[in-house]
């Protein structure tokens, strides 16, 4: 589909548990349905980014293999999931041991060395863990791999607070923001609040994803909504989001809000 253009490489940031991985995998699946070549690179030590694209199965992670001293090739770590989506998991140490941030740095450098799949894709999604806690977690951006960053948040105060911090962090490392996505938690005036937040930091709200039980049901069976319930309403929302991301070419240096202003917004 995409002949000469460079691939669109995006990362979705947001508070832990807010829905980054499920949004990323559904967007990946939706783009694959549209005929794009898609890759998802899970950078969370939990390695849970691609499970729902692989029918609930786990794949060996790059760091697992590096640890075993394996001379890694592309076939060892790049797996094909739903509708041809290429899946990679970075992996990482057990919680509380070692240095997960360094792990991400090492793994993405390794991947870059052994695989050119990224260059052949139309869309590459880096699914990063929770907040940007240390240098390793922005490695995909710092190493010049990611070209677009998105922030995912609900209308609750804490996720917005995290989103705001992330925006500050992105600006600090000179990375523009391409859009805000709202993943709803059914709080009052949610779309309005997140929309206002997006506007005030200088960006746009590019999608409002409702909270639907079906997302969880599909996840329990090990699938994305796109695969298990393609005719659901929320599948259409993910489809629209996928199109919005693929056609998006606006990004801004986000202007993080003062704490006080953020609180006012949610009141």
């Amino acid at each position: 589909m995409n002949d000469s253009k460079k691939p669109k490489i995006i990362a979705i940031y947001g508070k832990g548990g807010i829905g980054k991985s499920s949004t990323a995998s559904n967007v990946a699946a939706a783009c694959a349905d549209e005929g794009y070549k898609v890759m998802i690179i899970g950078c969370d030590p939990k390695s849970d980014s691609s499970i729902t694209l692989l029918g609930g199965k786990r794949i060996p992670t790059i760091l697992d293999l590096i640890r075993k001293g394996v001379d890694i090739t592309e076939d060892d770590v790049v797996f094909e999931g739903y509708n041809g989506v290429k899946c990679v998991e970075v992996g990482g140490p057990e919680p509380g041991i070692g240095c997960a941030g360094r792990g991400i740095i090492v793994a993405i450098q390794k991947l870059k060395k052994i695989s050119k799949v990224q260059d052949e894709c139309d869309l590459v999604i880096y699914d990063v863990p929770g907040d940007i806690v240390c240098g390793g977690f922005v490695a995909p951006i710092r190493k010049g791999l990611v070209s677009e960053a998105y922030v995912l948040t609900s209308g609750e105060y804490m996720p917005l607070y995290a989103a705001n911090n992330i925006c500050r962090g992105l600006s600090k490392i000179n990375t523009p923001l391409s859009g805000v996505i709202c993943n709803a938690r059914n709080v009052s005036r949610e779309e309005e609040i997140v929309g206002k937040f997006a506007e005030e930091i200088g960006s746009d709200l590019i999608a409002f994803i409702p909270k639907e039980q079906i997302v969880q049901d599909c996840e329990r069976d090990g699938f994305s909504v796109m695969e298990k319930a393609p005719d659901s309403e929320i599948a259409q929302v993910y489809r629209n989001l996928a199109r919005a991301i693929m056609s998006r070419n606006k990004s801004v240096m986000a202007n993080a809000l003062e704490d006080e202003r953020l609180r006012e917004l949610t009141r």
């Binding site: 740095i105 390793g136 710092r142």
Partner: peptide, 10 residues
């Protein structure tokens, strides 16, 4: 500096 992810280039 490498463990904490310093970017020399920046």
């Amino acid at each position: 500096s490498m463990i904490i992810g310093e970017e020399l280039h920046d």
